[in-house]
Nucleic acid binder design. Structure first.
Lengths: 296, 296
DNA sequence: TGTTCGAGATAGATAAATGCTATCAGTTAC
DNA sequence: GTAACTGATAGCATTTATCTATCTCGAACA
């Protein structure tokens, strides 16, 4: 248990700086006795005098005092830095990414981070994510805004459109984009991964459309394989990049153009959590969307 | 002006360590409200919460809190070190050596110092030395104890015998040592450098002897030259090493054997000065007399 | 050699802080 | 729903810091 106070150190340094107790007291806007007593207490705790009190001349630090005062000044400076908020040791920011988004987002995101911004990424399910946010195990979460509790604040970082996935010879593949109305006319393939089937269905229902769900697949990759093989048109928020499915068949993706069909991608923070400087920096970087997020 | 207190930091660190306000209060032997209030004040000053207060579970630091607490702990540790007396920045020890002693002592002394003991040597006259000690401009002084004021403490480091200096064919040169009584019978050569002529005369007077001072020289080297050329026997505390004088004539030195003729060489410190750790170390080294002092 | 002057130390009073007891409020666990 | 526990709040007591007034002690000056 330390018995010294920062005030005592400040006073002692002021005495050295001002060359005397009286002058220092004036500079500090306190009375001379207050400073005299404080200095005496500090010296008593140290067991050695810090200054040679010589009438007339300036108060000269003792040999011990010179070392001590220099160190004290350094201490005070770093203490001031600490209180100013820029604590030197930057613990890694713990960033959670919703598991369905992670394969698309996390790689480019981590690759784009500056070297001096340590991040511990985690890929979590929705429940684990909200739980971790509440428990303070996660600093930032990047996810769809699906039923996040009120105790977390959200900032929309991007709005991601759903994409239709199909073989290159599908008739809708000729178009630059498709509409929900057009999709309602074709057999759809939905994956149980990612945003729920119910979510997709609601998208159509808001426009009075009734989609025909021909297949429900367990994984997104299976959905892409089905679509590539002409079993219907896949629908997905993630994986908008064309190419081919795992079985080698070619695939194209076409954005759904309907206004309001975009799903907001949010950066979530627990409301009563306070981000570290590094955390704030990461949040700003993500909000600035430096190319690692899927294009809306 | 810092408004944070070390106590607040200690409390905050304790909360983190003990996983909660109540547990930390017990560990610190203070009441829970006292700790709660102190923590709130600290958080108010920071403008951000340090902990997520979640009932039941352990108090988890916020992301900001993690960085802050780690830095605070580091700060507290170095503050404790500061108060323990081992301040890191070791200012050079300012060592003054009496000007007549310096040519004999200072070189070997500095050469024998360890590399991590910074010393700023100064060669001063007696008055400048006592003055500097009093003003705190000098930490340690190595000198004869000739009228040092009461305000300096002295520690005898060595007792240096006077030496007779003569040519190798002088009859006293046959002896291993000489006595003051013998010296009283031969023409003496005294230098105005070093201990005063009055001091030498007093040495004889205490034994009821009246020395015959044939020559007084301005410098020690001139005295050695006179002695080498047979003009008398030199008497000196310093330069006991034989060899030859500047003019090339051979010289021998013979110690004065009389008990009580030794002159104490003292290490002086201003009484109200406090040595730095480095200063203490230098003082111990000098007191241990590691070969850089003239043999008694 | 006394006198004056100024810097720091001391004493007593007052204000501010720190801490304690008692109590309240909000959650979790049963 | 209730018990149990954690942290927050309120009011009071104690300690600590600071103030004004005064004292002491050297040094500078005549």
């Amino acid at each position: 248990m330390l018995s010294v106070t920062l005030r005592q150190l400040e006073y002692a340094v002021a005495v050295a700086r001002n060359g005397g107790v009286t002058a220092a007291a004036q500079a500090l806007n306190i009375s001379q006795p207050a400073l005299s007593v404080a200095l005496s207490q500090l010296e008593a705790q140290l067991g050695k005098p810090l200054f040679l009190r010589r009438p007339r001349g300036p108060a000269v630090p003792t040999a011990f005092g010179r070392d001590f005062l220099e160190a004290a000044e350094t201490q005070l400076a770093s203490m001031a830095r600490l209180m100013a908020g820029d604590a030197a040791p930057a613990a890694p920011v713990r960033l959670a990414v919703f598991e369905d988004l992670a394969p698309v987002i996390l790689g480019p995101l981590l690759a784009a981070l500056p070297a001096d911004l340590p991040v511990t990424p985690g890929v979590l399910g929705f429940e684990a994510m909200t739980d971790g946010l509440g428990r303070g195990q996660i600093d930032l979460a990047l996810t769809w805004d699906l039923g996040l509790p009120l105790s977390v604040t959200r900032e929309e970082v991007a709005r991601v459109k759903p994409h239709a996935v199909m073989g290159p010879r599908h008739r809708l593949a000729l178009r630059a984009g498709v509409s929900l109305a057009e999709l309602a006319d074709v057999p759809l393939i939905l994956a149980d991964q990612g945003l729920s089937v119910g979510h997709m269905r609601a998208l159509f229902a808001r426009r009075g459309l009734a989609p025909r769900i021909a297949h429900r697949t367990a994984t997104l990759e299976l959905m892409r394989s089905f679509a590539a093989n002409g079993l219907g048109v896949g629908l997905s928020y993630t994986a908008p990049v064309p190419g081919q499915s795992y079985d080698g068949a070619a695939l194209v993706t076409r954005p759904v153009l309907d206004a309001g069909a975009g799903e907001p991608l949010v950066l979530a923070v627990a409301r009563d959590n306070a981000l570290s400087p590094a955390g704030e920096r990461l949040a700003r970087l993500i909000a600035a969307r430096r190319g690692f997020l899927p294009k809306g």
